[in-house]
Amino acid sequence: MNFLQSIDWMGLLKCFIVGGIICIIGQILIDKTKLTPARILVIYVTVGAILGGLGIYKYLIEFAGAGATVPLTGFGANLAKGAIQEVKSLGVLGAFIGGVKASAGGIAAAVFFGYLASLIAKPKIKKQ
């Protein structure tokens, strides 16, 4: 069986729709409120962490896969999930380790590629 045949098209559609709807909510926040991008990202990550902590977000992930993990709410939920898991093995110390451990890949990638991009790229005007 090759990879293309293995793709679950129904799952992909669910992912597309859920991911899209999560973005629409963000767009409404941009257009209808005066929130800056940073504030909107903070709201998303915090809401995601709370939903993850309450154990609700995992149902959305089961339903939509990357449609729920790729938006920043998924990043928040992952932080919360990591903290809870680590608490199970390490107790209260795990609360401090688990979150960052679970999202270490993303954070390190952002820092590393960010620095790398700054070495290569030059600021440019946006022609909009």
């Binding site: 941009i30 991008p37 790229a121 600021p123 440019k124 005007i125 946006k126």
Partner: peptide
Amino acid sequence: HFCSAEKQFRFPLELGNQR
């Protein structure tokens, strides 16, 4: 200057935001 003003008052030029 558009670029120095954006940098000082608003966001980096490369940020994908909408005006």
